[in-house]
Simulated assay, not measured.
Amino acid sequence: MSTALTLPTLSVGDSIERYVQRVNAFPMLSPEEEHDLAIRHQEHNDLDAARQLVLSHLRVVVSIARGYSGYGLPQADLIQEGNIGLMKAVKRFEASRGVRLYSFAVHWIKAEIHEYILRNWRLVRIATTKAQRKLFFNLRSMKSSFAALTHVQAKEIADDLGVKPEEVLEMETRMTGQDVSLVADDGDDEGYAPIDWLADSHSEPTAVLARNRLDELQSVGIGAALDALDERSRRIIEARWLTDDGESSTLHDLAAEFNVSAERIRQIETKALQKMKQALLPAMV
């Protein structure tokens, strides 16, 4: 439905006041007009009826969106998200239930705005469960000041919302916390960024010892394992696995060099690798 409706939008450079004037110009519907339009849309898929229902309730979206201005997000985006919720409400509205569209649409409008705020208010999601979302959207309005909550105040809010005081204090911490960059800003030569205090896993003692052991196996152990091979087997292994330029020889290349079949080269290679593995096992334990 949203792709077929043409609605007023907040374009770049357009002011909120001008948009409000435009949506307020659309007349409110009487209960009878609203019922008739809803029937036309529901039973006949009349998009013009749906459009009139949406246009007459755009002012409702503006009113609801203004209640979320304290989250620091663009008012225009809040309104646009609310409009999406309104269109979803119109699509699902059933006039036969005896409820006005306004009452039915409020839930859908707020739901879309809530989702937008939770996606964009912080880089880290601060409310994921239903209970956390309820607490997130009620805590700001229930606080009497910008000061941190006392345990008594937290308990009062928790009792009103049916949650634990610890959950109230945790949500307050999440809401008042600021996003911190992991790395320092460009040109900032003073102080340290959080990344400077993170441990380097490559410098961990056991990791260093493991790398040293691996280097020893590669330089000494593999050399000894190669010495245990016959000349042809060693040549095949080196050509296939230990080239300096990273371009290994193919089975057919070596077959032509030794005047045997490619399958015979594969057999020699497999046997040589098994022999090297047995030679390396004692050094790896």
Results as ranks from 00 to 15, higher is better:
Ala4Tyr: 03
Thr9Ala: 15
Leu10Lys: 14
Val12Gly: 05
Val12Glu: 10
Glu17Phe: 06
Tyr19Pro: 02
Ala25Pro: 08
Ser30Glu: 05
Glu34Pro: 14
Leu37Thr: 04
Ile39Phe: 01
Asp46Gly: 12
Asp48Arg: 03
Arg51Pro: 02
Leu53Glu: 00
Leu55Asn: 14
Leu55Ile: 01
Val60Gln: 09
Ile64Asn: 10
Arg66Thr: 05
Ser69Asp: 08
Leu73Ile: 01
Ala76Lys: 12
Asp77Gly: 15
Glu81Gly: 08
Glu81Cys: 12
Met87Tyr: 03
Lys88Val: 02
Ala89Tyr: 05
Ala95Thr: 00
Ser103Tyr: 07
Phe104His: 15
Phe104Asp: 09
Ala105Gln: 07
Ile109Asp: 05
Arg119Ile: 01
Asn120Lys: 11
Asn120Ser: 12
Asn120Pro: 04
Trp121Cys: 11
Arg122Tyr: 02
Ile126Cys: 11
Met142Arg: 14
Ser144Asn: 13
Lys155Ala: 06
Asp159Tyr: 08
Asp160Ile: 13
Pro165Arg: 07
Val168Ile: 11
Thr176Cys: 13
Val180Ser: 04
Glu190Arg: 14
Ile195Asp: 05
Ile195Glu: 06
Asp200Trp: 04
Pro205Thr: 08
Ala207Lys: 15
Arg211Tyr: 04
Asn212Cys: 03
Asn212Glu: 11
Leu214Ala: 06
Gly221Cys: 07
Ala225Cys: 04
Ala228Tyr: 03
Arg234Pro: 00
Trp241Ser: 15
Thr243Val: 08
Leu251Val: 05
Glu257Gly: 06
Val260Trp: 00
Arg266Trp: 06
Arg266Asp: 14
Lys275Ala: 14
Leu281Pro: 02
